[in-house]
Write a protein that binds this DNA or RNA. Structure first.
Length: 519
RNA sequence: GGCUCCGUAGCCAAGUGGCUAAGGCAGCGGAUUGCAAAUCCGCCAUCGUCGGUUCGACUCCGACCGGAGCCUCCA
């Protein structure tokens, strides 16, 4: 369980299980097995579904960049009560609906630059694995069949509740119609008998389908082994889902399921007071205003619009920046305002990229991301300030993936590079030494933004068919205006600029000429 | 009622037992510009309230107030 590879950096990870940070030590030296609970595919994904994937994509990028080999698994729950209900309502089949919604999910992930998923198992493709897992639990006396269902017997699991610090007595269980088939209320279903007309698989207990928690235990074992390194998910999955996964897996295997349990904070729809969940709290006389403005997690708010709708209004880069600007364990305040703000903040990067491309004639997006983390000496050409910022960035990422600080150092880096360009007048002069230093700085920028999965592709231009024509016209307008300015005819020059601004085109008179961009 | 967690500038958001409490957005002043835009420089917080521990706390402990999550499906 120790990392023999001594050249790997020390990375600290917070685990919900221990409630503290400890240095990453992997089951297999140099290899990280990582499992993230993915979506139940019954509706188009919303922004809340994107949080975990973006965060763990960033985790994987940083681990891989730091020298580990990483296998990242994200499951897709494609058999479930909600899918059955939704497909019935739509008059389609569970399989078809799941396929459609999985495609939607994958498309959204790709848009956000989540590219690191290695394996994406589906529950329906692992029914045999799941049944074998359940049989193992029954054989060990940890589970029992009851009238076509199979339940996990929590009373046989001495450390049940260790993840969330609660006792069997404190859990209420599903209740409802299954109550009388269970030995105790906190027992949970491993296998559910099919009702007539429902999708079903044959099993030793009759036709049915897997319970909610078992697929993750069975599939993570099949792909990553009984004990792997990192298990992730949203904070709302800690109980009962992850608690029950631990119960199943550790009861069967007698070893830890995952060394680190990482949970991301939930998207909050600021101001969109949804229903007030949970049991009533003691006090009365609640402040109406506070209640009205209370944030609510997206999945329980009315703000959970399909992610695709969101993309019509906001650039994916702005969304990723927003997600990474907050520490991953904190809730994220979400809404039009925060998104617009992070969009504006992000444009400072793109302006710098464009500026440096004008100077160096090098495509920033085409620069190679340094894929293996190197020591300070490797980036010395970029100067002390940049080297120091890079060290700060890496230290932040090594400290439980503190992307908020990492982002802050990136903003500092933008300022440092802009200042360097200003001070050396690189837009008009081209001294070779300074250009080389600028190139080194941009390589660091490319390296670090790459670790966060940002700016990997040139943003798509507004795809107007007349784009070439517009560019030609703009060249003409700018030339005419330049002549006016030369002739000190500023009235004409300002008229042109003001009219263009009103039309959504911004003119910038720079030392090396006039540029334009769409607002 | 039980279990987690949070409360930092106008807004968002890091962080630390004692050194200048990151960064972003907005705002203000300056440099630059024909004027702008962009860029750069500078300004803008004593850390929910009240107690306690300590030589010293925003950081630890307690109480209180406010907010979030979970205890039922949820990323």
């Amino acid at each position: 369980m120790a990392d023999a590879a001594g050249d790997l950096p020390r990375i600290e990870i917070y685990s919900t299980l221990t409630r503290k940070k400890t240095p990453l030590e992997t089951v297999q030296p140099g290899h990280v097995g990582m499992y993230l609970c993915g979506p139940t595919v019954y509706k188009p994904s919303h922004i809340g579904h994107m949080v975990g994937p973006v965060i763990f994509d960033t985790v994987k990028r940083h681990l891989a960049y730091s020298g580990w080999k990483v296998t990242w698994v994200v499951n897709v729950t494609d058999v479930d009560d909600k899918i059955i209900a939704e497909s019935a309502a739509r008059g389609t089949t569970m399989a078809k609906l799941a396929e459609e919604m999985t495609a939607d999910y994958l498309e959204n992930l790709a848009t956000l630059g989540v590219t690191g998923i290695d394996v994406m198992p589906k529950a329906t493709e692992h029914i045999g694995t799941i049944i074998a897992f359940i049989e193992g639990l029954i054989a060990k006396g940890m589970a029992y069949a009851s009238d076509g269902d199979v339940y996990f017997d929590v009373t046989r699991d001495p450390d049940y509740g260790k993840l969330t610090n609660r006792s069997v007595e404190q859990t209420q269980g599903e209740g409802g119609s299954t109550a009388e088939r269970k030995r105790s209320a906190a027992d949970f279903a491993l296998w559910k008998q099919a009702k007539p007309g429902e999708p079903a698989w044959d099993s030793p207990w009759g036709p049915g389908r897997p319970g909610w928690h078992i697929e993750c235990s069975a599939m993570s074992k099949a792909i990553l082994g009984p004990h792997f390194d990192i298990h992730g998910g949203g904070l709302d999955l800690v109980f009962p889902h992850h608690e029950n996964e631990i119960a199943q897996s550790e009861s069967l295997h007698d070893c830890p399921m995952a060394t680190y349990w990482m949970h991301n904070g939930l998207m909050q729809a600021a101001g969109a007071a949804g229903k007030v969940g949970g049991r009533p709290r003691g006090g009365e006389g609640s402040a109406d205003d506070a209640a009205a403005q209370a944030a609510t997690k997206i999945s329980k708010s009315t703000g959970a619009e399909p992610f695709k709708n969101l993309l019509a209004r906001h650039r994916p880069e702005a969304i990723r920046v927003l997600l990474l600007s907050t520490h991953y364990r904190s809730p994220i305040h979400f809404g039009e305002e925060p998104l617009g703000e992070s969009g504006r903040a992000m444009e400072a990067f793109e302006r710098l990229f464009a500026r440096s491309e004008r100077i160096t004639a090098t495509d920033f997006y085409g620069l190679p991301c340094r894929d293996r983390r190197a020591g300070d000496a490797a980036v010395a050409a970029a100067g002390d300030e940049v080297t120091a910022l890079r060290a700060k960035f890496l230290a932040a990422m090594d400290d439980d993936f503190n992307t908020a600080i990492a982002m802050a150092t990136l903003f500092d880096l933008v300022r440092v590079v802009n200042k360097f360009i200003d001070q050396h007048g690189l837009e008009t002069k081209k001294p070779a030494a300074e250009l080389a230093a600028l190139g080194a700085m941009l390589l660091v920028m490319r390296e670090l933004t790459g670790v966060l999965g940002l700016f990997l592709q040139r943003p798509r231009q507004a795809a107007g068919a007349d784009e070439g024509l517009v560019a030609q016209l703009m060249d003409l307008v700018i030339e005419i205006r330049a002549n006016a300015r030369k002739a000190k005819d500023f009235g004409t020059a300002d008229l042109v600029r003001n009219k263009l601004t009103a039309a959504g085109i911004v003119l910038e008179d720079r030392p090396d000429g006039t540029g334009w961009s769409r607002k």
